[in-house]
Design a protein around this nucleic acid. Structure first.
Length: 875
RNA sequence: GGGCGCGUAGCUCAGGGGUAGAGCGUCGCCCUUACAAGGCGAAUGUCGGCGGUUCGAAACCGUCCGCGCCCACCA
């Protein structure tokens, strides 16, 4: 006891580490130091092999949520490890202009001032958005710094900046010239609130309650009944369609019938699209307001009559003009009822209704002139790149979704009737000229020339992100060095929005080179009960709150630990706290090591000279390095974090460190050797942990080694050292100690209470560990008048404890009886197996051996337990 | 209507033909001089139901029940 104290005071100075782990103080100064030293700067001229990952650009509108923190943790861990492995690493930062989202936010700001964007005009409005972007864009960068994202800030890009805008124009022009972009009038998804077209995937469908009404069309003999949920569109009907084989309506096909509430008559057409089994088998056809009807209209050369404007307000002349679509619906049904044309009253009907993904307004299909990307050849190439194995998808199950999508893709509507975004580079001349400008072309200045007023879908520019950020279309050194990207890490929710588009554009613009080799799709962050996080539900968490409270390391570790491939990640505050506790544990263990002279200086002592304890931990360390590497290569973040957690805490801190205490007390060469081994184990463990928990490991490692930074340290290699004999020996030691501890606990002995004991270890593997056993179990030398009242034979050795009559015999009998029953059950089970000929004939040898071993052990246990029972004093 | 996935300890989830695992939580003892943000010990599950394959099934197959997600132009 006193010796130990002396040892600390005399030979080793107090470590520079504060006694208490305070995450905020540890993390505070590190990040800017890393940036200032240029660790994260990617050098295109470097000889090192490149490793590139782009940030999925967050919307400038916002701040980062836990989903970003999660994604960034994964990307940062990957790139930090690669950097340590000697790659020239580029973690590309930047933001997305997020067309509709941003415009909506700024319009809301304006609304507070009682203005609309039209009050400002286009130019002033766009100016206002830029202003807003410049004011709020810094938030995200601050959060990324706090998280520890090792990005190259000098390369930060924005999808609307000058260079990227040039890239957008270049690609548009190329696609246009290749006739892969065209302009056409089609039915599109229209948001009557955002006042723009949106693409198919920007529509979210939900099962909504509607009402189906049946309306009688026609006069006299020539009538039929149609069913609809959208009565208001009847004003734009230009036909009724029936199935060609439907005998009920055969006599009407080709005839014209009267359209109620109007003075028009419309034809009855035969079209196989109609399902005779559904409803009445007759469908009203409104080509201007329904995509199916539009196609029927095309087939039968029907006119398109639009009856609503961009606000979904009725424009058709008559009593309904000016009514909103919903008001019009009930008004029209009312009018029809008055005419006696409602043959079956409204009945509830659940059907799929599309909503704008931005504002949830019900989408109105609308006939409109828009710009389109002809996706056929692009999507084919995007599918093939994955099919051919040029691009790998993790987890692989997601491939199927990807194929389903790219193989069944409709043309992509890329024009938006917004002001914020990349303006379509097409000009119209006074004599009907249409000119698409490239990035270097002069804008036409003559009388009557105007530019297309639409902007591009925001995903058009994000589709170029893997190469536009590197300077494309210029053939820059960076493009040469860092394209294609190594891996893309993003959520499965934007597989179609973003990943597939990058694949299409990357392959197209970069001569068939896919934008990345590997796609890693992660899940969504959820709350601790697995519920989706949302502001309205009140379970959304600001990552900064938890980082302030527990540290970025703790948040990162928790997120990494939950990252099972492709699955959603639940997270709760308790878990972050648990990770903070882990960081604290690492902190304290390292402090202990430093106080006891752990070192990384000099060669490791030769294995022959090392104790079994040292050989065991070095053997385990090698295995863990290999294991962690394998998990990294397979993007198994949860597995690698968990492996490190258990190795560090259970094996290094709870066992190895405890065992070194005895060695350090005894001193001598063994202690010197152990100082070096302990230093080695911490050195490697901190390196392995660094990509996930960069801050605390940096502080501890630089203190331990005196080196500049862990960020640029070399990633550990598996030493290849394995010592199975030592591993078994220490395992036995652990079993003995656990067994005796359990006995002590059952006996109600206080942990600190010393007990006189006699150990008989001669001839067993445990002989060299007597001092450690005594220390860990608080066993004293037997002393005078030693009277053993409990003897535990374990692994061939015995531990006799002098409990001087205080033993709780009843408790011990109970425990032993339980153990005995378990062992007997084990024997019965093993016997049954080993006498089963079918089993013996078919089971592999190692299984049979295992069962035999189990039998032997159970038999030995029974002997031991009987001996213990016999040795117990009478109750 | 198609496709994918999931139902394992109180909660959240790993595992995956050969004696049921982790984190958090629970119970008991302890401020043992790195750490109470800690140590030691303990309890807890007919691995959704039913069939089948197998020497052996929580795992493989079939089926049913319950959940989730993605896709789809059925008025």
């Amino acid at each position: 006891m006193t010796e130990n104290t002396q040892h600390q005071n005399s030979s080793v100075p107090e470590p520079e580490l504060p006694k208490t782990y305070a995450p905020a103080e540890v993390e505070g100064p590190l990040y800017e130091r890393w940036v200032d030293r240029g660790y994260f700067a990617a050098d295109a001229k470097s000889e090192k092999p490149p490793y590139t990952v782009v940030i999925p650009p967050p919307n400038v509108t916002g701040s980062l949520h836990l989903g970003h923190a999660f994604e960034h943790t994964l990307i940062d861990a990957l790139t930090r490890r690669k950097r340590m492995q000697g790659f020239e690493t580029l973690w590309q930062p930047g933001m997305d202009h997020a067309g509709i989202a941003t415009q909506n936010v700024v319009e809301r700001e304006l609304a507070k001032e009682g203005k609309s964007r039209h009050d400002l005009g286009r130019e002033a409005f766009v100016e206002r958005v830029w202003q807003w972007k410049n004011e709020s864009g810094g938030q995200i960068s601050g959060q990324m710094r706090r998280l520890g994202d090792g990005v190259d800030w000098d390369r930060e890009r924005f999808t609307m900046d000058e260079g990227l805008s040039q890239a957008v124009k270049t690609l548009f022009k190329k696609l246009y010239d290749d006739e892969l972009i065209y302009r056409a009038e089609r039915i599109i998804n229209w948001c009557p609130r955002c006042l723009t077209a949106i693409s198919d995937i920007e529509v979210e469908y939900s099962e909504d309650e509607g009402e189906l009404v049946s309306i009688k069309y026609g006069e006299g003999e020539e009538t039929l009944v149609v069913a609809t949920t959208r009565a208001e569109t009847m004003l734009g009907d230009t036909a009724v369609a029936v199935h060609p084989d439907d005998e009920r309506y055969a006599h009407l096909i080709g005839k014209r019938i009267k359209l109620p509430l109007t003075d028009r008559s419309i034809p009855v057409v035969a079209d196989t699209h109609v399902d005779p089994e559904f409803g009445t088998g007759a469908v009203k056809v409104t080509p201007a307001h329904d995509p199916n009807d539009f196609e029927i209209g095309q087939r039968h050369d029907l006119p398109n009559i639009a009856v609503m404007d961009e606000h979904a307000v009725i424009t058709a002349h008559g009593p309904f003009q000016g009514l909103d679509r919903l008001e019009a619906r009930s008004a029209i049904v009312g009018a029809l009822r008055a005419e006696g044309r409602i043959v079956a009253e409204k009945r509830p009907y659940t059907h799929s209704v599309g909503h704008c993904s931005r504002c949830k307004t019900t989408v109105e299909p609308r006939l409109s002139m828009q710009w389109w990307v002809k996706v056929g050849p692009l999507a084919k190439a995007a599918g093939d790149a994955v099919r051919d194995g040029k691009v790998k998808v993790h987890p692989q199950e997601m491939e199927k979704r990807y194929f389903d999508w790219v193989d069944n893709l409709h043309d992509w509507c890329i024009s938006r009737q917004l002001w914020w975004g990349h303006r379509i580079p097409v000009w119209y001349g006074p004599n009907g000229e249409v000119v698409c400008l490239g990035p270097d072309d002069e804008e036409p200045t003559g009388e009557g020339w105007t530019q297309d007023t639409d902007v591009l879908d925001t995903w058009f520019s994000s589709g170029l992100w893997p190469f536009s950020t590197l300077g494309w279309p210029e053939q820059t050194e960076s493009l040469e060095k860092f394209y294609p990207n190594s891996v893309l890490v993003t959520g499965y929710d934007i597989l179609f929005f973003w990943v597939a588009r990058m694949m299409m554009f990357g392959l197209y613009a970069m001569d068939g080179t896919p934008p990345f080799h590997t796609i890693v799709l992660h899940g969504m962050v959820r709350d601790q009960f697995g519920k989706k996080m949302s502001k309205s539900f009140g379970n959304a968490v600001n990552p900064l709150d938890w980082m302030d409270k527990y540290g970025s390391d703790a948040l990162r570790f928790t997120l990494a630990r939950g990252a099972n491939p492709g699955t959603d990640v639940p997270i709760g505050e308790d878990w972050v706290q648990g990770s903070r506790n882990f960081a604290n544990k690492i902190w304290n263990a390292t402090r202990f090591a430093l106080m006891n002279g752990a070192t990384v200086k000099g060669e490791l002592p030769p294995a022959e000279r090392l104790s079994a304890t040292d050989r065991w931990i070095l053997s385990r360390l090698g295995s863990v390095v290999a294991e962690v590497d394998a998990y990294y290569e397979d993007y198994q973040f949860a597995k690698l974090s968990d492996a490190l957690f258990h190795f560090a805490w259970d094996e290094v801190f709870d066992w190895y460190v405890e065992l070194t205490k005895t060695t350090f007390q005894e001193g001598g060469q063994a202690a010197e050797d152990t100082k070096r081994v302990l230093g080695e184990v911490l050195d490697v463990t901190l390196k392995l942990l660094h990509p996930v928990v960069p801050f605390v490991t940096e502080t501890l490692w630089t203190t331990l080694t005196g080196n500049e930074s862990l960020v640029i340290a070399e990633w550990p290699a598996d030493s290849g050292f394995r010592d199975e004999a030592a591993e078994r020996e220490i395992e036995t030691l652990q079993q003995v100690i656990t067994e005796v501890r359990r006995f002590r606990s059952d006996q109600g002995l206080q942990p600190g209470q010393k007990v006189p004991a006699r150990l008989t270890l001669d001839g067993t593997a445990l002989a060299p560990h007597e001092a450690a056993i005594r220390q860990l179990l608080r066993l004293q030398p037997e002393g005078e008048g030693f009277a053993a009242t409990a003897t535990l034979p374990v692994s061939g050795a015995t531990v006799a404890l002098d409990l001087s009559g205080t033993i709780d015999v009843a408790a011990e009998r109970k425990r032993l009886a339980k153990d005995l029953a378990a062992a007997e059950k084990e024997i019965t089970a093993a016997d049954a197996k080993l006498t089963n000929e079918a089993f013996l004939a078919k089971a592999p040898d190692h299984v049979v051996d295992k069962i035999r071993g189990r039998l032997t052990k159970a038999e030995a246990d029974i002997e031991r337990i009987k001996g213990q029972l016999d040795a117990l004093p009478a109750a």
